[in-house]
């Protein structure tokens, strides 16, 4: 996947100010930065639902939003996009038939996100964490080659978070590329690559280890702060 000179305006204000980066196949890319820095807009541009002002986004060799990509890219929005008046299994059955996935595939993703006990439960009665996992399950349907997740681990307990990150790496080991946004820095260390964003710009694009080495800070939150002050010309 590659992004060149991506610029997006929303409501007359620039939200992304010309981004350039590449993501190799099978990588887990962490998209980090404070709320409002443009993470969601970047994600929407990658899945092809965002109107862009300039630049290109190429996904699996095709322009973002290409009809061919609609079976190959899994997407979960920050707000869980599932039908609250259907059960978990009914939701997956519907999205599965839209994608042309088999019924067996719905059971597979339900198990992957750990919702087997809730499969017959109405989505509207699930807890917040279960709800976001139901939405995540939809993104995994049909065996996509790129999975784009906007804040998938919000509201999950540490054990579940660890399990999900385990799942993400398992998928990546099978050749799936993942782009995962988060605003919590402790998740950064679990990514292969980090894209640190601030106010619509990329502050850093590096592996966690390289970032630690460059800034001389072990803690990634400290490293992030160091980069901000470096850019603004003030002492860290």
């Amino acid at each position: 996947m590659s992004v060149r000179g991506l610029r997006v305006d929303r409501g007359g204000r620039p939200v992304l100010r010309g981004l350039d980066f590449d993501v190799p196949r099978g990588a887990v890319l962490g998209l980090l930065g404070p709320s409002g820095c443009g993470k969601t807009t970047l994600i929407r541009s990658i899945v092809g639902v965002q109107m862009v002002r300039g630049g290109t986004v190429t996904v699996l060799g095709r322009p973002a939003g290409d009809p061919e990509l609609r079976r190959l890219v899994g997407y979960a929005t920050q707000q869980p996009a599932v039908y609250t008046d259907l059960t978990v299994a009914e939701n997956l059955r519907y999205f599965g038939s839209v994608l042309g996935a088999s019924r067996h595939d719905a059971d597979r993703v339900i198990a992957q996100v750990g919702l087997a006990d809730q499969r017959g439960q109405l989505v509207g009665t699930l807890s917040g964490g279960q709800l976001s996992r139901a939405s995540l399950a939809v993104a995994l349907l049909g065996g996509p080659e790129l999975v784009v997740l906007d804040e998938p681990t919000v509201g999950l307990d540490p054990l579940l978070r660890q399990e999900l990150w385990g799942l993400f790496h398992e998928l990546a080991a099978g050749g799936v590329t993942l782009i995962v946004s988060s605003h919590v820095m402790d998740e950064a260390s679990r990514c292969d690559r980090l894209l640190l964003m601030r106010e619509g710009d990329i502050l850093a694009d590096a592996a966690p280890a390289a970032l630690r080495a460059r800034t001389g800070r072990q803690d990634l939150e400290q490293a992030f702060l160091h980069l901000i002050s470096e850019r603004e010309g003030a002492p860290a």
């Binding site: 899945v47 609609r70 997407y75 996009a81 039908y83 839209v98």
Partner: peptide
């Protein structure tokens, strides 16, 4: 408003 339309628009529907 629930985001399901946006999700469907990224699918082959």
């Amino acid at each position: 408003t629930g985001g399901t339309l946006e999700r469907l628009m990224t699918m082959p529907l």
